[in-house]
């Protein structure tokens, strides 16, 4: 523990300049925001920063609508998790299948190419017709948003396995199945992870968009309600929550990747 503390301190000392500039740039932002809020009037209203932060922390205990902000966040995250996990599992399976079998690629890829240019958001009206106004239409949108990235990356990963490694494994007596599970799959993992990372952030964006466009709860709903009531403070509270969750999700993915793909890092 002490050692970690020491290294953190050393880094901070080395990056004193960076730290100073972070303080400067945040201070500038806050001051500009404060000044803008004092000058703003009429239609363009800008609440003061302090007011927004206060409202943000208040909303953790005082509900907006029926739920506190933490509950809203939980609802949104649960949808993302469901859509993302299902899409990841199916995407990996289809992607790897396309990567190892040219026949499967020929069958699946054209269908994929037809659907791919349509942004997932454009599916929202159809998804509402199919799945109703509740959670399932959003889960479907999240599924569509992440499925593409996971599939493409798994495909690229499985296709770009170094043939020398496959040769080496066969030489060492590995069966076809073992070549698949012990060579093709692990060597695709960095590609798959790159796909999962994009997919998760796109999922989060799609979830927010779907909630903004139509929902009864979740963090996106908070800002839509704010818009409908002309409550800009509430919009900003919702945006902060969205940003914090987005940041946490991408950090989580990076940590997991660091663990699983340790071998892939370049040691210097």
């Amino acid at each position: 523990m002490q050692r970690i503390g020491k290294t953190v301190w050393k880094r901070l000392k080395a990056n004193r300049q960076t730290l100073l500039w972070i303080v400067i740039s945040f201070a500038t932002l806050l001051i500009a925001w404060q000044v803008a809020s004092m000058l703003s009037q009429g239609r363009v209203q800008i609440p003061a920063p302090l007011e927004v932060f206060e409202a943000f922390f208040r909303s953790m205990t005082v509900p907006i609508g029926k739920n506190t902000i933490l509950e809203h966040a939980g609802i949104s995250l649960w949808r993302v998790l469901l859509g993302f996990v299902v899409a990841s599992v199916i995407g990996m399976a289809i992607g790897i299948l396309m990567g190892v079998s040219p026949k499967a690629h020929a069958v699946i890829n054209p269908l994929f190419e037809f659907v791919r240019p349509i942004p997932p958001i454009a599916w929202i009206p159809l998804s509402i017709l199919w799945f109703g106004l509740g959670s399932s239409n959003k889960i479907f949108i999240i599924f569509l948003a992440s499925f593409t990235y996971v599939t493409i990356n798994s495909y690229e990963g499985a296709r770009n396995v170094d043939p020398k490694l496959i040769g080496a494994a066969r030489m060492l007596g590995a069966s076809r199945r073992r070549v698949f599970t012990h060579v093709i799959f692990p060597s695709s993992v960095p590609y798959i992870f790159a796909g999962l990372q994009i997919a998760l952030s796109v999922s989060w964006a799609a979830e927010v968009a779907a909630e903004i466009i139509y929902s009864q709860n979740g963090v996106g709903w908070i800002i839509t309600m704010g818009m409908n009531n002309g409550n800009i403070t509430q919009i900003m509270v919702g945006m902060i929550a969205i940003g914090v969750i987005g940041y946490l999700l991408s950090t989580l993915m990076r940590v997991v990747e660091g663990r699983l793909c340790r071998w892939n890092r370049q040691e210097t």
Partner: peptide, 14 residues
């Protein structure tokens, strides 16, 4: 970390 789409309501009000 804030997806651009989350700016939509704010921009519409402004």
């Amino acid at each position: 970390p804030i997806p651009p789409l989350a700016w939509i309501p704010l921009m519409i009000l402004w």
